[in-house]
Simulated assay, not measured.
Amino acid sequence: MKNLLCIAFILTLLTFGCSNEDGNLSLKTTDTNSAFKFEAKYPESKTAGLEKYVDSILKKELPLGRNIDLFVNLNGNDKFNLKAKMGWLEINFDKKNTSLDSYMEVKKLASDIGKKLAEK
């Protein structure tokens, strides 16, 4: 029961929306026993800055402003699905047969993306 309350609390904290000058920001995180999903809807004007930020973290050039749907390799074995277009990004990570380190890396990436998008 305590774990369930903790998970509910974390999901509540991670799922929020706020407004800024350019439009709306909506961040949604779903974390279950088998999968982790992060979705961000943000002003299109923030796409270029987010692209630079994600490229620097992942050490890869990802064209977030285009319609992309690809797998990003984390450590040679584990990977996550990244979908993006102007003003929208989604990360899907299958927890089955993957390492805890990779899960934590993807979770931190999602959190950092949310923080970056919330900057004014």
Rank of each mutant, 00 (worst) to 15 (best):
residue 101 D to E: 13
residue 100 L to Q: 09
residue 8 A to D: 15
residue 47 T to C: 02
residue 24 N to V: 11
residue 57 I to R: 12
residue 29 T to G: 07
residue 96 K to I: 07
residue 105 E to K: 13
residue 26 S to R: 08
residue 40 A to M: 02
residue 45 S to E: 10
residue 50 L to E: 01
residue 104 M to S: 12
residue 55 D to E: 13
residue 87 G to A: 05
residue 4 L to G: 11
residue 17 G to E: 14
residue 83 K to F: 10
residue 46 K to D: 01
residue 24 N to G: 13
residue 11 L to S: 12
residue 33 N to H: 06
residue 93 F to D: 11
residue 53 Y to A: 09
residue 68 I to Q: 06
residue 12 T to P: 07
residue 54 V to T: 06
residue 74 L to F: 04
residue 20 N to S: 06
residue 85 K to E: 05
residue 66 R to C: 03
residue 49 G to C: 05
residue 43 P to L: 02
residue 62 L to S: 02
residue 2 K to D: 07
residue 1 M to F: 12
residue 45 S to K: 14
residue 41 K to D: 07
residue 116 K to G: 09
residue 29 T to W: 13
residue 82 L to Q: 00
residue 69 D to I: 08
residue 23 G to R: 01
residue 10 I to G: 05
residue 115 K to L: 09
residue 86 M to N: 13
residue 94 D to L: 07
residue 117 L to K: 00
residue 27 L to P: 00
residue 102 S to C: 04
residue 106 V to E: 03
residue 5 L to P: 06
residue 5 L to H: 14
residue 70 L to E: 13
residue 34 S to F: 06
residue 87 G to I: 04
residue 18 C to K: 11
residue 42 Y to S: 04
residue 4 L to W: 13
residue 99 S to D: 10
residue 15 T to M: 03
residue 24 N to T: 14
residue 14 L to V: 07
residue 64 L to F: 03
residue 93 F to K: 01
residue 64 L to K: 04
residue 93 F to G: 04
residue 3 N to I: 13
residue 44 E to Q: 15
residue 23 G to Q: 03
residue 112 D to R: 11
residue 70 L to G: 08
residue 41 K to P: 05
residue 114 G to W: 00
residue 42 Y to G: 01
residue 85 K to A: 05
residue 58 L to M: 05
residue 3 N to G: 12
residue 95 K to C: 05
residue 26 S to Y: 10
residue 50 L to C: 03
residue 46 K to C: 01
residue 51 E to K: 15
residue 95 K to P: 09
residue 88 W to F: 14
residue 97 N to Q: 14
residue 28 K to A: 09
residue 75 N to C: 03
residue 56 S to M: 11
residue 11 L to Y: 14
residue 27 L to F: 07
residue 87 G to K: 01
residue 63 P to G: 07
residue 93 F to W: 03
residue 19 S to W: 07
residue 57 I to A: 01
residue 21 E to A: 12
residue 86 M to W: 06
residue 62 L to N: 00
residue 14 L to N: 12
residue 76 G to V: 06
residue 14 L to R: 09
residue 29 T to C: 13
residue 64 L to N: 01
residue 43 P to C: 02
residue 71 F to G: 10
residue 114 G to A: 06
residue 53 Y to D: 03
residue 34 S to Y: 09
residue 62 L to R: 03
residue 59 K to L: 10
residue 53 Y to E: 06
residue 5 L to I: 15
residue 39 E to G: 09
residue 77 N to A: 10
residue 48 A to N: 14
residue 47 T to Q: 04
residue 72 V to T: 13
residue 111 S to T: 13
residue 41 K to F: 07
residue 30 T to W: 11
residue 97 N to C: 07
residue 114 G to C: 02
residue 32 T to Y: 08
residue 111 S to W: 07
residue 107 K to T: 10
residue 56 S to A: 15
residue 18 C to N: 08
residue 97 N to S: 13
residue 62 L to D: 00
residue 36 F to W: 06
residue 48 A to C: 11
residue 34 S to N: 12
residue 31 D to T: 01
residue 65 G to E: 05
residue 100 L to C: 03
residue 111 S to N: 14
residue 93 F to Y: 08
residue 26 S to I: 08
residue 64 L to M: 02
residue 16 F to W: 10
residue 67 N to L: 15
residue 102 S to G: 08
residue 17 G to F: 09
residue 69 D to N: 14
residue 98 T to W: 04
residue 38 F to G: 01
residue 63 P to I: 10
residue 47 T to F: 01
residue 90 E to W: 09
residue 24 N to I: 09
residue 103 Y to D: 12
residue 76 G to E: 03
residue 98 T to Y: 02
residue 54 V to I: 12
residue 39 E to A: 14
residue 3 N to C: 12
